[in-house]
Each structure stands twice: as structure tokens, then as C-alpha cells.
């Protein structure tokens, strides 16, 4: 049983490492990042993964080793501890942990603190309700809650390579606005109107996911983020305007 246990421990460590090594090629990794800030989050993730991975491998090898060594003859030493060792393995991880904590203070501040918000008008308002995303653009007057507001369901268009500020509103329960490709997630709590910002660097269509349980239809609450070059974004707003002013003669 000793060898089998050692084998199991080594196998488990190998499986952990394997599951991360092959993750990218199987698409088990984060979707490709397209936000200006996401890179720094990914970098932090990788840093933590490397540290955690190293710790895991060391601990598992030690565990395998101590289990392996148990077969020797004679009795164990009746040793109750060693203060120097205790201090060592308290201080060492503490150093790593303090480094880890310190290393992400800047990211968090720039990601979330209100002072870091880019000084641009709100691009769109995201209205969440069971089980739908609606998006409101301020229209030509640049103000919300006026007659020329433009509204779409499902698809949010934003300009590429520009800071985008969104105001999030919930009509009923808590939802969460999650765009995996942008590394953006923010709960939408009714009664609060959180504001988020990001800069998308690549045009394309990305998934919007609801990440907070909002009822039976939670899984259906998908949306799409269309990142468009500025000119196409403007054209999209004009298209919405035209659709809004439809007189019903076109078939749709």
C-alpha cells in the first residue's frame, strides 16, 4: 500500500500539472483576452498559477517522500517540534503571500476605484431583467431618459480602442454582467447603479453571460457584445435610429 499511495500522490500532482499544461490546446483556458486591462489580470493569474503550481509540486513531492520513507526499520523519534523550522515555514510563505497581496493592489485600484474611471460620457445603459439584457444608448442628445433614446435587446455595440463606460441597472433581482473575453464581471444589484469601464482592443462578437443566479431562466440569459470600429459603431447607431423611426412599411 505504501508504494501505491506514493504512486497516487505523484499521479495526482502530475494530473494537476497536466490539466494546466494541456488546457490551452483543448480550449480549457480563458477565452482570448481582448481588453486593454485583461492582460494584467491574465498576468496576475499566471503569476499565481506558477507560484501555486510550484508549491503544489513541492508539497506533493515532500508528501510522497515522507510516505515513502516510512518503511524503514526501528521506531520514530519522539520529537515534538522545532521552533526554528516553525518560524521558517511561517515566515517564508508569509513573504510570498505579502508579495502576492502587494502585487495586485495597483491592478485592483485601476480596475475598480472610482478615481480611475475614464472621463468619458456613459456609452450605454445595461438594463438587466429576468431573463434578458436590454441596452439603451442616449441618442443624439447624449442624455438618457429622453425621447430619442435608442434601445436594443441582446446585442450591445461598443466602439473599438476607446474607453467605454457602462451604467448597469437591474429591473428585478440580482444579475451579473460578465464578458469573459474582456475579463469584466459586475453584479447588477437592484437599487444600486454600478458603473464599469473597459477598453476593447479587437472588433468582433463576444459573449455576455449572466453570472449570478437570477431565477429559473438564469442559463438562458445570454447576450452579445459587438465591438465595432468607430465608423461602424456610429453607423450602427444610425441604423438603430432608422429602425426606431420605421413607419412599418418594410416587412420587419
Amino acid at each position: 500500500m505504501r508504494r501505491l499511495t506514493v504512486l497516487l500522490i505523484v499521479l495526482l500532482a502530475a494530473a494537476c500539472v497536466w490539466s494546466f499544461v494541456v488546457a490551452r490546446e483543448h480550449g480549457w483556458w480563458f477565452p482570448r483576452n481582448v481588453s486593454a486591462f485583461g492582460e494584467r489580470i491574465d498576468h496576475l493569474f499566471e503569476l499565481i498559477t506558477w507560484i501555486a503550481g510550484a508549491v503544489l509540486v513541492i508539497v506533493f513531492l515532500l508528501l510522497a517522500l515522507v510516505v515513502w520513507r516510512g518503511a524503514r526499520a526501528g521506531r520514530a523519534e519522539r520529537a515534538h517540534g522545532d521552533t526554528r523550522l516553525e518560524v521558517a515555514w511561517t515566515v517564508l510563505p508569509a513573504g510570498v503571500l505579502v508579495f502576492l497581496a502587494y502585487d495586485q493592489l495597483d491592478e485592483w485600484r485601476e480596475l475598480k476605484y472610482a478615481g480611475s474611471r475614464p472621463n468619458v460620457p456613459v456609452t450605454a445603459r445595461v438594463v438587466a431583467s429576468q431573463f434578458d439584457w436590454h441596452f439603451v444608448y442616449p441618442g443624439r442628445d447624449g442624455r438618457f431618459d429622453t425621447l430619442d433614446d435608442l434601445e436594443t435587446a441582446y446585442e450591445l455595440s461598443v466602439p473599438e480602442d476607446e474607453p467605454v463606460v457602462l451604467e448597469l441597472v437591474s429591473r428585478d433581482v440580482i444579475h451579473s454582467f460578465f464578458v469573459p473575453a474582456l475579463r469584466v464581471k459586475q453584479d447588477v444589484v437592484p437599487g444600486m447603479r454600478p458603473v464599469i469601464w473597459f477598453e476593447a482592443r479587437e472588433s468582433g462578437a463576444y459573449e455576455i453571460v449572466c453570472a449570478e443566479l437570477c431565477g429559473w431562466g438564469h442559463y438562458k440569459m445570454a447576450g452579445e457584445l459587438a465591438v465595432l470600429p468607430r465608423a461602424r459603431f456610429d453607423a450602427r447607431l444610425v441604423e438603430l435610429e432608422r429602425e426606431f423611426a420605421s413607419n412599418g412599411e418594410a416587412a420587419r
Partner: peptide, 19 residues
Amino acid sequence: LVRVLELGVYGTSMPSFRR
């Protein structure tokens, strides 16, 4: 009918099916 599937019926449990 297609339009209802596209936009959903906002304010009810019928969501947009543009996905």
C-alpha cells in the same frame, strides 16, 4: 412572430432569442 422571437416581450418572461 419572428420579431417577438428576436426582441422577446420586454417586461415578461419571454426573452429575446437572438442567441
